[in-house]
């Protein structure tokens, strides 16, 4: 799986409350989540996410298990998230909805182009190539299928 986007830099320890606040959770309308994503961090961020790759510090997605956090980010048009580590439930949630997560430690430059190839195991930005920690075989299968719903549709 390959992808490309414009870097949006975020700090470490982004929690899922700040990704999508509890007050927006009770709906089935996913566009509401995309509109309010990261609102409590930076209200102007949601509008800048289309076609972006989020490059964050460690422990991205800590806290609540709310899958709406991963969905909100994907619905806002984010191509992938790169961080040195992810909170484990967020990790599973993102892969389960087909949003690529990349474990890699790279310096973020806002607006720079980020290119990645998950099957080859690298991410490139600012002319530098970084290796990435490979996904487990099962997570790769789920992501390749497009998410866990699609995975189980194919495996039943």
């Amino acid at each position: 799986m390959q992808g490309k986007g414009t870097a949006v830099c975020l700090p470490a320890d982004i929690d899922t409350d700040v990704v999508i606040a509890g007050r927006y959770l009770r709906t089935k309308d996913r566009s509401i989540w995309a509109t309010h994503v990261f609102e409590d961090l930076d209200p102007s961020l949601a509008a800048r996410l289309k076609g972006s790759v989020i490059v964050a510090g460690k422990n991205f997605g800590c806290g609540s298990s709310r899958e709406q956090a991963a969905i909100a980010i994907r619905e806002a048009g984010v191509v992938a998230i790169i961080a040195p580590s992810f909170a484990r439930i967020f990790f599973r949630n993102a892969i389960n909805i087909g949003l690529p997560l990349i474990e890699s430690d790279l310096t973020c430059k806002e607006g720079s182009t980020v290119v990645f190839d998950l099957s080859q195991g690298w991410v490139e930005t600012e002319g530098k190539r970084h290796t990435i920690r490979p996904l487990s075989p099962r997570m790769s299968e789920i992501l390749t299928a497009g998410g866990l719903v699609e995975y189980w549709r194919a495996h039943r």
Binding site: S65, E67, I89, F90, R92, N93, I97, G147, L148, V149
Partner: peptide, 14 residues
């Protein structure tokens, strides 16, 4: 341990 919603749906299934 905790999981998210889609993982839970798959557990209901299997």
């Amino acid at each position: 341990t905790g999981v998210g919603a889609t993982d839970m749906a798959a557990i209901w299934l299997t």
